[in-house]
Design a protein around this nucleic acid. Sequence first.
DNA 1: ACTTGCATGTAAGTGGTTACATGATTGG
DNA 2: CCAATCATGTAACCACTTACATGCAAGT
Lengths: 182, 182
Amino acid sequence: MNVRTLCLSILYNEDATGYEIRRQCTDGECAYFVEASFGSIYPALAKLEDDGLVTSRSQTQDGKPTKKIYSITEAGRLAFVHHLSEPLAPNMFRSPFLLFARYAHLLPQELVEERVTDFLNEFTGKREMLDGFLGKHGTNAADTWVINYGRAMMEVAENHLRSHMHELITMARAEPKKEAAE
Amino acid sequence: MNVRTLCLSILYNEDATGYEIRRQCTDGECAYFVEASFGSIYPALAKLEDDGLVTSRSQTQDGKPTKKIYSITEAGRLAFVHHLSEPLAPNMFRSPFLLFARYAHLLPQELVEERVTDFLNEFTGKREMLDGFLGKHGTNAADTWVINYGRAMMEVAENHLRSHMHELITMARAEPKKEAAE
DNA sequence: ACTTGCATGTAAGTGGTTACATGATTGG
DNA sequence: CCAATCATGTAACCACTTACATGCAAGT
């Protein structure tokens, strides 16, 4: 699932600038399962325009830079639906934390505690963000379904961690780091 | 968390060949949160050897190709622990399926049903794989912790999907794809 | 005075993947 | 006879990230 498709998915619902698309990827409802930076969004939009899948118009604003608003074309809508009909790329979950956790016994306790707390907070933050979206206007049934799925996942992660984080922390080296050479 | 660190993490516990490292990434206990292909593992091992973090010896076998067994050095162990002590890269979860799900209403019902079933089966498969590791020898406390964490996540994903997949399927277009032009 | 938000874009670099090249052995 | 497993490695390619370049306005 490349950035081009991601842009089409957002433009399917409403016109947007590159900047707004990026904001949706950072703070929007799909922030927990997609990612994209400016460096990939702007070239993606330019290419989509070359291919006739989107059009753009510039809008000057006072006090703010001119923005370039993109709209999806009929060809863009078709291409997007066609893309969704093809086999999906695999879901990927990569967790440096879980790799870290496997070696908890090699590391100082404070560090393990800090990392596990960060990990927990990540989920708490994301769950709260998703909660925020549920109350909002203009959220259709499918969006709500996706948000609820995310919520369910964040919730177990939180609960599981709260119940079991101390097991991991007690596996860590009790002595402070500097005494390791003794 | 790059492939070099991944190789060190495996070699920390036991000697291995590039081929075996890749197998552990595909079928091993950390298969659900890391990934690496031959094209990244072999160059990574070569570079680790250049840097003196691993050593290798060749072993001829009859009926099978000669293999190159890598061992971690003391410098490699230190580098690995040092790497774990540094700030962790963010966890990443990317799900083309969830993007797909948001547009269920645009797609034919059979397709949505197929994709959601594939998604469910992915979790069932992974949970079964993790169950298999729990019964095994030589699994230390931290590994068991990580496996249990994974199990917990797979389990809710499964249960949530089984309970809610039909909601998503009913959002899909009831008519078959080919009649879309009518 | 400094940072943040708005806004677009490019260039260099990275960290991979995919496909290719090679080849013996075993099992269906 | 074909596919899969074992086994190593390279080269071309790709998608994306990071840092850079630019600049004004509003808030702290």
